[in-house]
Amino acid sequence: MNGTGTPGVTTVEHLLALGDDALVAAQRLGEWVAAAPELEEDVALANIALDQLGAARLLLTYAGELEGAGRDEDALAYLRDDREFRNCLLVELPNGDFAVTIAKLLFLSAYQLPLYTRLRGCPDERLAAIAGKAGKEVAYHLDHARLWTLRLGDGTAESHRRMQAAVDEVWPYTHELFAADPTAPVDPAGLRADFLAVVEPVLATATLDRPADGWAPDGGRAGRHTEHLSYLLAEMQVLHRAHPGANW
């Protein structure tokens, strides 16, 4: 949440924002397994999901230790309700068609890349190490989303129509990513220029219109989510809640 803590000092809230973004994004991408347009894309989205899940595990483990209440990564992932999640709304939105998924991935990775790059230099060595690792992987996610955006936007009339519709639909949710938080290890407000420097040329090359800035839904960082998150959590958490500690 904004306005808590001392500038530059990592808090549980900051780690949950980072970790929950990665966790919810991983869960959504995982829904494409066995349902992607082609087998190669099935494998690609599953691999990206795995990277996001890996980052989420490290960040939530750290959040649990910093909190000091005995919660580990599983307790944080499986035993919190929607109001306790700090992820942005962008990642919890339904996958939609493949173009919507690619638009979401493009915007998420174009935000995570400069974020992780700057976190790599933050004074918190543990967070810097996680960001250094995850940032290398996100660069590859961004490249994947960029290539698909070009192919779909500058493809057939139908693929162009659907990619433009996807970009228009998801764009409003990007504003929340850059809400100012001067206490965060890296203030997200400073990342929007980097984000636009990546995204705008991609959209232009893909012959897509960059949507106008207007409606800017938010609330995710404060635990106010869309109804979609509850359904996602129900599916993600049901096994652990029915069989606490289940393992394989």
Partner: peptide
Amino acid sequence: QLSRFGSTACKAL
């Protein structure tokens, strides 16, 4: 290149 992602996270096909 057939696919940017392969049988494990570290490989392409």
